[in-house]
Design a protein around this nucleic acid. Structure first.
Length: 559
RNA sequence: GGCCCCUUAGUCAAACGGCUAAGACGUCGCCCUCUCACGGCGAAGAUAUGGGUUCGAUUCCCGUAGGGGUCACCA
């Protein structure tokens, strides 16, 4: 077989050579040790947690080393592409602090455009580049065409591939595939010419020379030493529409774009053998690989499952909806990425997570379960360290979008709201009231609207409650300081026969009908409508005398 | 089914082959001059399993089990 002739027959329009490509995309001029990483999504939907995770690693590695993070859009499957998905991905990532130095970006006109000299950054626009290498492989006898008639192609597209594979007998199928492969390899020049003349489309397949009985040692930066069986599958390089498959595009693009570290999910491990072979055929040096374990969730049977698109906590938009601040999510991701992050953070509480010396060696090789408990804890800590102004800005922005009624109230009363947010904030041990912005309304909604949510707990005579409230009103003076205020509450307790000292009460609970805590509870429910609230004295101060009195009086009337 | 990856408490995780197997979240209890929160103290809770190498194994090797992934003209 004259491979040179075959290459000309198959790719008559391709005049450039791999050497031309190398000249057009020269190696990057970067400092020693600088890492080049990329996020390479297919625009088929939203960013989910399992996508943000490796992207955060790439971002850290690149920017921590003075390297480059770029975005390449893998839109090689037109059938699955979703309109506007690429724009959505870019925006969501930016929301989580992931900014790209290069690649597909949103231009001033709102459309996606390229930034950088290694483009185009959309694979659908890189056809000519792939064809140069495809032609090269064919001319070296390393790839061959397999023709299909249009009818066969339509039939192929009509079947549900996934369901079909699930249903078949694996052994039988593999034997059949092997036979088909051998037959396809034996194509003659005459057959090629006939098919081309008939206008039949073809796929380009790699001619695999591997023996799966033999293992290739391979070092993955996360998994460590691996043994990869050699590839013996003539996998598809170019689909019948001339667009490359992931494998081919990965090799060509990551080589030409100078990627130093490929970070991807471990579901790619089984196809690593294909990539090793492809890089060897192409004469490319392989980048370093980091195959990260999948984030898992628990299914209804208690088994771990890959966190997939439909799961709660998968779609990053869910976090926005639930009211998680981006900073909190990033922080949580850091705790999952590097086990020593939390320790570092405790010692460097005021530093941003980008100061943390991220270390590949500290990454876990096994998959972790998504844990909302931990996320909430991390969130509470992050928010507790925010200033009242910052809390106000973010909480208001969230509420305006997801709870407009409450959002408008916050927006209309910035000073009032900030005073409330300032309660217990700023000191060494700030309050941890919010894990999400959705927690804000239940916490402080009572400042805006009185709604009796809780009632008096336990056995308390209604007349006694009324008396306590009235006595308090009689002595209440908003000019009192906290101690003076508390002394008056104590006095109320004594007057209704309740114990004003918790220690004494606990020593002998039977000696009193109630205690100071009960009196505080009467006041708290009267003023806030709830059993739980910030410090009562402060609440009354913020609410003001008129409102405080009105609420207590109202309670006396309606009880 | 073939192949690949993974396995320390409920979860995330430390531990040159060597102290009683860290720490964090969660859970529970006690304390902290009003609840909540914060904080403090404390409790329960783990090396999947069987062999081997070794004076000694969570750590190294082999088997078993369990879990995950993958086997498309999808990425």
């Amino acid at each position: 077989m004259d491979y040179q002739k075959l290459a000309e027959l198959l790719f008559p329009g391709v005049t450039q050579t791999p050497a031309d490509m190398e000249a057009k995309f020269p190696p990057r001029n970067l400092p020693e040790g600088a890492k080049v990483t990329r996020f390479a999504p297919s625009p088929t939907g939203f960013v989910h947690f399992g996508g943000l995770f490796p992207t955060t690693i790439g971002e850290r590695l690149a920017h921590q080393s003075g390297g480059v993070l770029y975005l390449r859009i893998e839109d090689t499957d037109a059938k699955r592409e979703v309109d506007g998905a690429a724009e959505g991905l870019i925006k969501t990532l930016a929301h989580y602090g992931i900014h790209f130095d290069e690649g597909a970006v949103i231009g001033e006109d709102g459309n996606i455009c390229d930034k950088g000299i290694y483009g185009p950054y959309r694979q659908s626009q890189r056809g000519p580049i792939y064809h140069v290498y495809a032609k090269q492989l064919v001319s070296e006898g390393k790839a061959y065409p397999v023709f299909t008639t249009q009818e066969e192609l339509d039939a192929l597209n009509a079947v549900d591939k996934k369901a079909e594979i699930k249903a078949k007998d694996w052994h039988e199928d593999q034997t059949a595939q092997k036979e088909a492969m051998l037959k396809a390899r034996a194509i003659t020049m005459e057959e090629v010419e006939e098919n081309l003349k008939a206008g039949n489309p073809f796929v380009l397949r790699l001619l695999a020379d591997g023996d799966p009985e033999k293992k290739t040692p391979f070092t993955d930066l996360i998994k460590g030493k691996l043994e990869i069986p050699e590839n013996d599958e003539d996998f598809v390089l170019l689909k019948s529409d001339g667009i490359p498959t992931y494998h081919f595009a990965h090799a060509v693009d990551d080589h030409l774009m100078g990627t130093t570290h490929v970070i991807r999910g471990e579901e790619w491990l089984p196809s690593l053998a294909k990539h090793i072979m492809l890089f060897r055929y192409l004469g490319f040096r392989m980048p370093k690989y980091m195959h990260i374990a999948q984030i898992m969730r628990l299914d209804e049977n208690g088994n771990k499952k890959k966190l997939s698109k439909r799961d709660m906590g998968a779609n990053m938009d869910d976090y926005s909806r639930m009211g998680y601040a981006p900073a909190c999510v990033c922080e949580y991701i850091m705790t999952l990425l590097n086990s020593n992050y939390e320790e570092w953070h405790m010692q460097n509480a005021d530093k941003p997570y980008t100061d943390f010396p991220f270390n590949i060696k500290k990454m876990s090789s096994s998959g972790c379960l998504f844990d909302f408990n931990k996320l909430n804890d991390v969130s509470k800590n992050v928010i507790s360290r925010m200033s009242a102004d910052e809390v106000y800005e973010q909480a208001t922005a969230w509420a305006l979008e997801f709870d407009p009624e409450f959002g408008k109230k916050l927006a209309a009363t910035p000073d009032f709201a900030k005073t409330i947010f300032a309660i217990g904030r700023g000191g060494k041990k700030p309050r941890k009231d919010f894990a999400t912005w959705a927690d804000v309304k239940p916490y402080m909604g009572f400042f805006y609207d009185y709604e009796q949510i809780d009632t008096f707990a336990g056995e308390h005579d209604q007349e006694t409650v009324k008396k306590a409230l009235s006595l308090f009103l009689g002595s209440y003076d908003p000019a009192d300081d906290m101690n003076g205020w508390f002394e008056k509450v104590k006095a109320v307790a004594r007057e209704i026969g309740y114990c004003d000292d918790m220690k004494a009460y606990k020593a002998d609970p039977t000696a009193f009908p109630g205690n100071i805590a009960d009196v505080s509870m009467f006041l708290r429910v009267a003023v806030t409508g709830k059993l739980n609230a910030p410090d009562l004295y402060t609440v009354m101060q913020i609410l003001g005398e008129a409102e405080t009195r009105a609420r207590i009086e109202n309670m006396i009337q309606t009880i």
